[in-house]
């Protein structure tokens, strides 16, 4: 089973190739803010270098967020296009799980991604001997102060926006991993392989944790 991983939910987009549980290669997209332009070219390079064709891929693992709304939709739309005839299976991989799985030797992990306006998407994970990495609750939108009420001192906080959260490191009660960790195509692919589940194409939709501004504000009504 060859798996193509596509991760475009953060500023550092990557695509990766797995053959079964064997890592083949990963490529970082050329430009941080224009994923739509570079994903297909990178996928082509991956496959050509591996002497493969897109028809050799049986599963696509794609990041579904949370993260950049546009980036999420670019990845999912391309995955849907590649699987336009439903010949493959597309697996949606949550970005925060993708981040958390990259940390080894920890048992309490909280993954974060900036949600702008001094808020962060945060999800807690536990690493259990039997089940491995499992979510400990849903994704939340938290400020730094809120994090201190929810994340214990034994928790390590990890995510891509280290520069955004570093100024608050003195305020944080939990430990802060001191390097940015991005969701990556290779971890999307391996998660899709390990979990061995696949959804129908229609079910692959972005993971929106936050409502749109319009939904929050509501409709404009004229009163005379």
């Amino acid at each position: 089973m060859n798996i193509l991983g596509i991760e475009t939910t953060s500023s550092k987009g990557t695509v990766a190739l797995y053959s079964g549980d064997k890592f083949v290669a990963e490529l970082e997209l050329e430009h941080p803010l224009r994923h739509s332009r570079y994903v297909i070219a990178a996928v082509d390079r991956l496959l050509v270098d591996a002497c493969m064709d897109i028809t050799d891929i049986s599963r696509i693992a794609v990041g579904i967020g949370p993260g950049s709304f546009t980036g999420i939709r670019v990845g999912i739309a391309i995955a849907k296009g590649l699987n336009c005839d439903f010949a493959m299976k597309v697996v949606g991989i949550p970005s925060l799980k993708n981040i958390a799985v990259q940390l080894s030797g920890e048992t309490n992990i909280s993954a974060y991604i900036s949600a702008q306006r001094d808020e962060f998407f945060v999800q807690k994970f536990l690493v259990c001997p039997d089940t491995g990495l499992v979510p400990d609750g849903d994704c939340m939108i938290l400020t730094i102060d809120m994090m201190n009420t929810i994340l214990s001192e034994s928790t390590i906080l990890v995510g891509p926006d280290y520069a955004s959260i570093k100024p608050y490191s003195d305020k944080l009660l939990c430990r802060l991993y001191d390097h940015p960790v991005y969701p990556r195509g290779q971890y999307a692919a391996i998660l899709a392989y390990q979990e061995n589940y696949a959804l129908s194409d229609d079910d692959i939709v972005p993971l929106y944790v936050r409502r749109s501004e319009a939904e929050k504000k509501g409709a404009k009504v004229y009163k005379f």
């Binding site: 739509s36 082509d44 739309a77 336009c84």
Partner: peptide, 13 residues
């Protein structure tokens, strides 16, 4: 970007 990205996938496939 949704329409364009989808069609890029189809084009490659």
């Amino acid at each position: 970007i949704v329409g364009i990205s989808y069609m890029q996938g189809v084009s490659y496939r």
